[in-house]
Design a binder for these strands. Sequence first.
RNA 1: GCCGAUGUAGCACAGUGGUAGUGCAGCCGAUUCGUAAUCGGCAGGUCACGAGUUCAAAUCUCGUCAUCGGCUCCA
Length: 600
Amino acid sequence: MESVAVKPSEVLRQANQEHLHRLRHTCSHVMAMAVQKLFPDAKVTIGPATEHGFYYDFDRREPFTPGDLKSIAKEMRRIIKANLPVVRQELPREVIRQEIDKLNEPYKLELLAAIPEGQPISRYFLGEPDHHPQPWWDLCAGPHLESTGQIHPDAFALESVAGAYWRGDEKNAMLQRIYGTAWETPEQLESYHLMLEEAKRRDHRKIGKDLHLFSIQEEAGGGLVFWHPRGAAMRNLIETFWKETHLAGGYELVSTPHVANLELWKTSGHNDFYRDSMFDTMEVEEQTFQLKPMNCPFHILIFKDTLHSYREFPLRMAELGTVYRFERSGTLHGLMRVRGFTQDDAHIFCTESQIKDEILGVLNLAEFILSTFGFAQYEVNLSTRPEKYVGEDAIWEQATAALRQALEAKGWAYVVDEGGGAFYGPKIDIKIEDAIGRRWQCSTIQVDFNLPERFDLEYVGEDGNRHRPIMIHRALFGSLERFFGILVENYAGDFPLWLAPVQARLIPVSDDHLPYAVAVAAKMKAAGLRVQVDRSGDRMAKQIRKAELEKIPVMAIVGAKEMETETLSIRSRKHGELGALSVATVVEKMLAAVGDRGWF
RNA sequence: GCCGAUGUAGCACAGUGGUAGUGCAGCCGAUUCGUAAUCGGCAGGUCACGAGUUCAAAUCUCGUCAUCGGCUCCA
């Protein structure tokens, strides 16, 4: 399964992106033409190219079925084989408006009205415009291929039908979106399908179930995670590592409740700005309580409980804080999108002049922690002041400059998202790249000018006067649940030794060797290794098969030979049979692999 | 929440109106075995849940919940 000649992701990377974009866009027109031929009642809307293909949204009463997709694809192949020319025609607004009117396409009229004055307006025909009857055409800016024959009839596929709102707004009509994928060659399409299979093989929901890591239970409700012993063991390892690293990095650990009086959330502004994502309140002895969607107000209360001096700054407060957010049922997805999750949260209270160094410190910590889990490739975004914001311009500029300086000092390339910041401050987001090239947003670092104001935070400065501190929110994993899901998919369940919930399985050749296996296991456990003995009485080959299916990294065969010589015959999941090694050597080598966070 | 699909034993699946099935896992017994499945037996299901249609419902209808693919939103 690992030995594909050329990695599918490589094949796809070699494709000409500009050409692919045209091809996919044209493909979406071909599909729309096919759909309107087969289903004349379908109204056209928009149909752009996407990362892997294209889609087209239609307004039609009857839903498209999988069978419909087959006939649409067939019709598309016919259009491709006919090799119709793709002809662009620019027309004055009023002329094209009348043309659209004739076709009775209300969505296109709306699109036309949205095109700014002075911009050229064009349509694209599939077929010669002078031909009678007039060929199919679509209001479109282009660009496209020159003819439908340039699409390879075996390099596209229709994938699925999904609902989508007109212009992405849920107040609007629900349209039917048909997704397709399209490539230059059948080989690329094949590679794309291999990629999809690979992603499916790594799906954390499947692996999580197969390896008994976690579950989500219908009886308890969607989006609530149950960590089973093996998953919980891994989570504990991650948490321990996180806590030790933060303590070493100058953070102090705190722990706060899961609910609080609603008044707190009114002060913080969450009750106004975040209500849609919060669970309903609960009444207790005539007071109203709220399950927490964030940790920040709690850390602020700890901060406020004493008067602070600038000499204590920067003050770094960290917590693995479990929060609950109301997510609409249709959006829940395994561990990636849940209703209760644990943020690896921290809040740094500091002065303006400390922002840069603090951010740099967070970037270094993020790099250290993420790379420990095997993530060394990042995509970094810097988001600046949006249109609606709080805080003074000068301080926004100062903070944004500090973020830039920190990124530059770190030497990381980054993309600026102008106006993409939160209303309360600028931020840096870090996306990590996994083993098959997918990117996941994890870390976020946000400067906050709002909460210190709302809670009237103060510290005593060098001058003896009260000043308002700067507050930095930051999370590195983002959410432990989500990060765990990413880890599972990144490693495909083959975890490095330090994370593997069961590091070694001792396999007795027969029951005669069971006592020896138990004794050896005790020794290995005493050395701090997570070891199990297979007591099933199954044949050796069966025991090996079970251990392989459970992706246990080290198998140790125990038989007469091994008892005789006080050795273990090691079979590594990664490297196969390694022969007989003394128990002491196995322990030593395993501990070394744990130490450098590698595999055995 | 919205559009579409799905829900049968711990897991993977078969079963289109007439007494719920297969494989693996589990338990029991025999086998005591050298690098990915030993053999035999037993047990296990309110067919997601709740209504309805029918002489009869896993199967048809409606509702609820959950899951899957999307939309929207996001850690």
